[in-house]
């Protein structure tokens, strides 16, 4: 079933109305804590501010030492490569540099396991709220993770992060219609971790797995992604 077909079910209106009624009924019966925990929030906020400052300082030093960027590869920030362009060697970008990854979607790599994805209007907020995910914090030697998915222009744009024990030269993404080559994105001087993106033709097309490959073609890491949503309920 395509996204467009799904969005035109006449029964949705009734379901939506009932859901709205139930949510409002339940909300009226809620007993919520009236007083916010001000001291705890301020303490957590100060800690977060220190962490962000440390990340930004480290990123700035990296950018000064190795001022290599996507511009050097003929790709300017905000350019939108087509699906065909998204296969190839790793792109090197500066920390926080916005890279057009297709259909107006932008990606910014901020640090290990820390990637922001959004449109021109939302990428700032995505960068502000980005943080390293659990696998990175756990210090896993190799992984490939999906981080964002967008349906735009009849295609599905997927993005995520990766890490490998040695620099990979390719990332193969498995879809329901075969394999696609994703584009790897790295920061200067950090060839063993980064972000990836791929444009899959068709609306709401899932990805099923990924394989990071070494220069000689052997697999550095391979994983299958579980479905990102719970399974459909049985038909009534």
């Amino acid at each position: 079933m395509t996204g467009a077909t799904e969005r035109n079910d006449p029964r949705d209106q009734d379901t939506a109305a009932r859901l709205g009624e139930r949510l409002h009924e339940r909300a009226r019966r809620l007993e919520l804590t009236a007083e916010p925990p001000v001291a705890a929030v301020l303490r957590l906020g100060r800690r977060e501010r220190r962490r962000r400052r440390a990340v930004i300082s480290a990123a700035a030093v990296t950018a000064l030492v190795l001022p290599l960027g996507a511009a050097g590869l003929g790709l300017l920030p905000g350019d939108a490569p087509s699906a065909a362009d998204s296969a190839g060697p790793a792109l090197t970008v500066r920390p926080g540099e916005r890279l057009g990854i297709g259909h107006g979607i932008q990606l910014a790599l901020l640090g290990p396991g820390e990637v922001a994805v959004g449109t021109a209007g939302t990428i700032d907020a995505a960068m502000e709220s980005a943080g390293p995910h659990e696998l990175e914090r756990a210090g896993l030697a190799a992984y490939t993770l999906p981080a964002a998915v967008e349906t735009a222009g009849g295609d599905t744009v997927h993005a995520g992060t990766w890490r490998a024990a040695e620099p990979p030269t390719a990332l193969t993404i498995r879809t329901d219609h075969g394999e696609l080559a994703a584009t790897l994105v790295t920061l200067p001087g950090s060839p063993t971790w980064g972000a990836w993106f791929v444009v899959v033709p068709g609306e709401e097309e899932p990805i099923r797995g990924a394989t990071l490959k070494a220069p000689d073609g052997h697999s550095l890491y391979s994983t299958d992604f579980a479905t990102p949503e719970p399974a459909d309920p049985p038909a009534p």
Partner: peptide, 8 residues
């Protein structure tokens, strides 16, 4: 809210 305070 802590994230909001950090970037207030």
């Amino acid at each position: 809210l802590a994230k909001a305070f950090a970037r207030w």
